[in-house]
Design a protein around this nucleic acid. Sequence first.
RNA 1: GGGGAGAUACCAAAGCGGUCAACUGGGGUAGACUGUAAAUCUAUUGGCGUAGCCUUCGUAGGUUCGAAUCCUGCUCUCCCCA
Length: 375
Amino acid sequence: MFTIEGRDRDTKARAGTIITGHGSIPTPIFMPVGTGGTVKGILQSDLEDDIDAKIILGNTYHLYLRPGTGIIRKAGGLHRFMSWNRPILTDSGGYQVFSLSDNRKLTDEGAVFKSHIDGSKHIFTPENTVDIQRAIGADIMMAFDECTPWPCEYKYAKKSLSLTHHWLDRAIGRFRNTEPFYGSEQFLFPIVQGSTFDDLRRISAEKVASCGMEGNAIGGLSVGEPAEDMYRIIEVVNEILPDDKPRYLMGVGTPANLLEAISRGIDMFDCVMPTRNGRNGMLFTSEGVINIRNQKWADDLGPIDPSGPSEVSTRFSKAYLRHLVISGEHLGAQIASIHNLAFYLKLVAEARRKIIEGEFEKWKTAMVKKLSERL
RNA sequence: GGGGAGAUACCAAAGCGGUCAACUGGGGUAGACUGUAAAUCUAUUGGCGUAGCCUUCGUAGGUUCGAAUCCUGCUCUCCCCA
């Protein structure tokens, strides 16, 4: 399911391919987030053509509440429901346990929570989140975990970790006792937790590695901790996670975060940043980060990004995009999202080429510097 | 021609003797956003040497210890009737 085609000379970076029932994914890869069966504001055809997304995310919590698994099953799975034939990865709802923490209570059994939509009461367990993801038909399913907040007391992180591990065993049990609904093979990725504590992270990585799944994930990072802590934890964990399986860093991050993580052996990423921040006027370009709402772009008739990661990047000017965003026009959010996602996808594709050529590190160092510039 | 209402900061619109440099929206400016309860949220928006001072509420005067608020003249706008 995962093959490695190349490795960088000087770093832990590698270039590989993940094969799923809905197509293969070159790594390193960035996965656009499509929480509720849509990458917000973007047409599937634009994801396929202009952005060339290889895989997108869906979210168990959101899809379960709306439209509900009944409709998705009736449609023949999420791929058919949303007319997307490339791979899909679903998050288990573990992140919502964290982000909607006011509305939930954790027990050994699972997480009892109130719907943010209508206040109705539900429970997520390691078992039923596998069932829901089976109904969704995700190519890659995630184990149900607790994404701990930051900062986090050692005592709490340790207790939470044992809960996550306990849940992991049960999720794998259910995974092994059930079959895909739609014929296409599904994988289940376990998630390393342990907050910013090296020893807990080691314990968790050992546990996850011992499960022998087709890929592994690192969660609980980029929740507010300094980037240096995140990089350190990645190094600690990747020492232990199997080298011949893809490693997925959940919820990360900025373009610079991606390159730093790739150099430490990460293969997969997802993040709302290119879409959400794009909708709010933040553009990632080959020249640096810009806030398109700033006055200084008002009369800049040059392209959004001359390096042209997407068709919209050179077709439209900064002044036009600024006008759209300032005016609250939906097209502004759409163009910004398309450009940002294409920028992310081009960035990881370029990283892949550099890795195969064995020249990743030098390129990465220069890029990180450039990408962090604020225009 | 007759009668009535009103003129407040970039726009709209509160305020109707001191607690008003003036509520609130919009607009402007800047910031935040990392497994999406976010096309959202926050700050700021007369000037300056900024715990203070200066200039502002159509305009010219007046009353008062004190006026955006009360009185008078003027200018302009809107509405109704003819």
